[in-house]
Design a protein around this nucleic acid. Structure first.
Lengths: 163, 163
DNA sequence: CATCTTAGCTAAAAAATTTAGACAATTAGC
DNA sequence: GCTAATTGTCTAAATTTTTTAGCTAAGATG
């Protein structure tokens, strides 16, 4: 698809909505499934590990809330990740009930993960090379807020009329 | 996050890459999980149904290729969706081996699905209301191409060094 | 026509998730 | 300060989903 300057703004917004609900969602899921496969873990486990890598150590309850996974399932996931040497569980000194889960740092894996993302980064760089700085800034702002919107909308859907 | 015009373009691209690999992915997964939950089906089944609704009738093999799900799992999924009255399987007249899977049209469900997306659409409209037409067009072009990039990168990751 | 390939399916086995609940540490109420 | 309720994490059994292996029918290949 190319930029069509003459297009009506409402039409563009509608198109955007369909993209987000449809094909982009599938693409994102496929991409993360592929990363998990390469790491030799399943997608759910990767989601937890990714969260730990991105936001730092967290306790199981926080992981459960942020991923939408039940706390019992999180316990299983952490067991698998720990057995694979990808995370460690440490008691939280500030609260005896809590556990703090840390991603185990491993330069080799960091490099491997980096390589997996370079393809995506390169393609995104190619795609955005023709955009102006102003357009690029708008895109970055949009995707940043979009993540939050999707999280919030997901939470809203769960809350509203839980059938 | 807000648009920071003074920011270096490379920096913005790097930030964009992190967003796509990280939080946006999680948001998208959560959103689709919430929709599936509301429909009373699981996420995988929803991914197939969504594909059928978006791109029209397809055979199981095509569904398997586009979702990354094995053909045996697709058969199970279609069995569940068919039992739930959401799809029907019809023999393909042009090839006796093939099956064509149709999403069953249901005005009630279409309306329900529409409602689930209105929240997202509204938020996206709010978010983009401050953008210029030019910025909006750039965003729409970006997300459209992004979906394709993520699909391709996922396929590339699966192909390269399948460990 | 014999063989190979493709499309879709089923059944058994393996893996993941849910449900139910145990247990310890903390907090709240009295 | 003691008791009851709550919170955080975990385990075990039951359920659900996916994988693995392999079958059958239809179409393509030579």
């Amino acid at each position: 698809m190319t930029v069509r300057p003459g297009q009506d703004a409402e039409q563009i917004r509608a198109q955007l909505g369909r993209q987000l609900g449809g094909r982009l969602g599938t693409g994102v899921v496929l991409f993360h499934a592929a990363i998990a496969e390469r790491l030799g873990i399943n997608v759910t486990d990767w989601r937890c590990l990714e969260l730990l890598l991105r936001t730092g150590p967290a306790n199981p309850t926080r992981l459960a809330r942020h991923t939408g996974i039940s706390s019992a399932a999180i316990a299983q996931i952490l067991g698998r990740l720990e057995r694979a040497g990808l995370v460690v569980r440490r008691p939280d000194p500030s609260d005896g009930r809590r556990t703090l889960v840390h991603a185990v740092s491993d330069p080799d894996r960091d490099r491997e993960l980096g390589e997996m993302f370079t393809g995506l980064h390169q393609r995104v760089a190619d795609l955005t090379s023709s955009f102006s700085d102003d357009q690029l800034a708008a895109i970055a702002a949009f995707t940043a807020d979009l993540a939050e919107i999707m999280e919030n909308e997901a939470a809203a859907l769960r809350r509203r009329q839980p059938d």
